[in-house]
Design a protein around this nucleic acid. Structure first.
Lengths: 225, 225
DNA sequence: GAAACCAATTTTGCCGACAATTTAGTTTAA
DNA sequence: TTAAACTAAATTGTCGGCAAAATTGGTTTC
């Protein structure tokens, strides 16, 4: 018999995060500690940790004595996130363009290459992770820890918003626009990189359907399977 | 006999936050769960919650299996926080200037008035809370939940940095500069408000002594008394 | 004399169980 | 018929205790 190592808090967070991003867990669903504990086969204490982490990332709302629910971002909140993202991403690109090393460009290129592979294979999970990861990598290369943390928050919130409001079947944060941005940075053309980034964010936001959605899935166990 | 209600998690966070901001808890000090539990007379579980909250605010670092320590922000990290603050505060002021109501200005004026009172009375605790609160109020009035949350993070980190690196005895975030900013906003002069805010942040950063500090206080109980 | 090792103590991580609160269902009265 | 009130079930909040990991202090060895 093999010793069955229990699931870590981080793994639970990622699993729930993915389930939300892939629209298997719908906004408004209550995440009951007991159910999750049973599903992941861990104690409720660990579930609790995961839920507070998810609250910090803006994916769930915890109401005292009432429980944790998948966030239902309003249209205003969605626009708010995109507004802040525009500012932050501008900041990031500006900083990167001030001092780019060859190693940085190489990391960016290899990341975009992985995005292409995921897209070619239609690997939904990888596509979601990597398209967010691109922007996260940019923040990392900007050299500001605080911007990095902020981008982390913004990306998880954007994932939720995209999951709720997107109307197209395809994920919109494709590798082509990422690629253009990388090449502009590599060429040292800061102006162009900034312009491309703004357009990129415009496209992502433009593909959202900003009508209110009220939908619930009670199939918690199946969604997390 | 009166029923002794136990201390809430939030109260513990605030208490530790203040102790750090007032330099009674020095950077690098380990915050042992057992000791804190004894000091506040609560269970370790609640201390644990408070510590994770403090970690999120950037005031303590939690190392797995090793414990929680008061953060020791490096000079680079300090500059990083101020860099981001400049961008965010610019964003906030721009948004406020676009649409200011009389009620907003009135709230700002009354806040600055409270700052004046605290300064006149030399009430250190109030001065710290209110000077941060001014910037937080600006973020609130900007109407962006995300900017508000970000400013919350930035302020707590700035408090830590100020506690570590300031060389003057006085707190620098005085009400006079705040007052000027409010009046510029009230007059609808966005350009001036922005300029004043930048100068204000310059002053705050300029009064920091950016040499490394290595100091520890073991007097945990006294610092929290 | 210094480095390495080992045991005893301290501290963190985790889980199960109990208490408090909320929710859902049923009864009762207007 | 409706609404309030009461009861039972379910869910969250909290605590104490135990296991695992790390620190400390002393001892041995080279």
């Amino acid at each position: 018999m093999t010793e069955q190592a229990s699931v870590s808090t981080q793994q639970i967070v990622e699993k729930v995060w993915l389930s939300i991003a892939e629209r298997r867990l719908r906004p408004g669903v209550q995440l009951k500690e007991g159910h999750l504990a049973e599903i992941f086969d861990v104690s409720r204490a660990r579930i609790r940790q995961a839920l507070t982490a998810l609250e910090r990332e803006g994916l769930v709302t915890i109401i005292p004595n009432r429980g944790a629910y998948v966030c239902q971002p309003s249209v205003d909140e969605a626009r708010d996130v995109f507004f802040v993202r525009r500012s932050v991403e501008r900041c990031v690109v500006e900083r990167i363009c001030k001092s780019t090393s060859k190693a940085d460009v190489s990391r960016l290129r290899s990341h975009v290459a992985r995005e292409r592979v995921a897209n070619a294979n239609d690997a939904t999970t990888d596509i979601i992770k990597l398209s967010g990861g691109f922007h996260l990598l940019l923040a990392e290369l900007s050299g500001s820890d605080f911007l990095f943390g902020m981008m982390r928050d913004l990306i998880s919130r954007t994932s939720l918003i995209t999951a709720v409001y997107r109307n197209t079947a395809r994920f919109n944060c494709g590798p082509d626009e990422h690629d253009e941005i990388v090449e502009a940075i590599s060429a040292g053309d800061g102006e162009k990189a900034l312009r491309l980034m703004q357009h990129h964010l415009d496209h992502v936001e433009a593909e959202l359907d900003l009508r209110e959605v009220r939908d619930m899935s009670h199939d918690l166990k199946a969604a997390l399977a």
